[in-house]
């Protein structure tokens, strides 16, 4: 909690997950997945449709029930409650942007800050806008009227304004043009690095993940496998 308010953690142990099992009824989606994101580390999770990428993020956020040997952030277990998870400094940017369409961009950012218990909204806003200046001209507009790329940018900003230690982004590239994907990915990653925020980024687009991430894992058959990022051929064939 205090970490989230006072700035990103530079110490601590980050996110640690061991032997995570998640299912919807009888359909088991994750079978004993283990994953670690160190503080400030940028980790990409690739995988085909239905591999459980979104499920993984929802579980971490506390939206879904699960069993795990270990599911901690900075050594303390994460509760199954989104409010508590945000309070720990783990913020989720959901798939499909999920703008509050009738609220202005500024109001969307404020909601992110309220949810993240930010005491000094003005300072948090300045910090994020300085790093994502493309949002500034849109602040007074209704979020529902923005393009998909603009909405994605705002969704990332809305997550970052809570001063998270770890930002989790779901399908940043979904439905966006290649140029928009390139610019938003670049600005998001640069901002996270600047703020020292860890990034857990799941995406179908393995090329973009490989370009920006420190480390890459592949979600297949319900477990996470490390990917050798130096092996270009392996990257190209991981889905097959």
């Amino acid at each position: 909690m205090t970490i989230a308010q006072d700035g990103p953690a530079t110490t601590g142990r980050g996110l640690e997950i061991e032997n995570l099992v998640v299912g919807y009824g009888k359909a088991i989606v994750l079978h004993g997945l283990s994953l670690r994101v160190a503080p400030g580390e940028i980790v990409g999770v690739a995988g085909p449709n239905g591999a459980g990428k979104s499920t993984l993020l929802k579980v971490i956020s506390g939206l879904l029930p699960r069993t795990a040997d270990r599911m901690t952030f900075d050594g303390v277990p994460l509760k199954r409650d989104p409010v508590a998870v945000v309070g720990r400094g783990v913020v989720h940017v959901p798939e499909g942007r999920r703008m509050f369409a009738n609220l202005t961009v500024e109001e969307n950012l404020k909601v992110g800050a309220i949810g993240g218990r930010v005491r000094d909204y003005r300072a948090a806003r300045e910090r994020v806008l300085a790093l994502l200046p493309t949002i500034v001209p849109m602040l007074g507009r209704k979020a529902g009227l923005l393009s998909g790329g603009q909405q994605q940018q705002v969704a990332v900003a809305r997550g970052l304004i809570a001063n998270p230690s770890l930002l989790m982004v779901d399908e940043l590239s979904l439905g966006l043009s290649p140029s928009a994907v390139a610019s938003i990915s670049a600005s998001t990653v640069a901002t996270c690095r600047e703020l020292g925020t860890g990034l857990l980024w799941v995406d179908q687009n393995i090329t973009i993940l490989a370009k920006h991430c420190d480390r890459l894992v592949l979600l297949r058959d319900g477990v996470a496998e490390p990917v050798d990022m130096s092996d270009r051929d392996a990257l190209g064939s991981v889905y097959f």
């Binding site: 956020s61 939206l63 989104p82 409010v83 998870v85 945000v86 309070g87 913020v91 989720h92 959901p94 999920r98 509050f100 369409a101 009738n102 609220l103 909601v111 992110g112 309220i114 949810g115 993240g116 218990r117 809305r158 997550g159 809570a162």
Partner: peptide, 10 residues
């Protein structure tokens, strides 16, 4: 407007 998203944001 979006109860699930609002909860996800804390």
């Amino acid at each position: 407007e979006q109860p699930d998203t609002a909860r996800l944001l804390g």
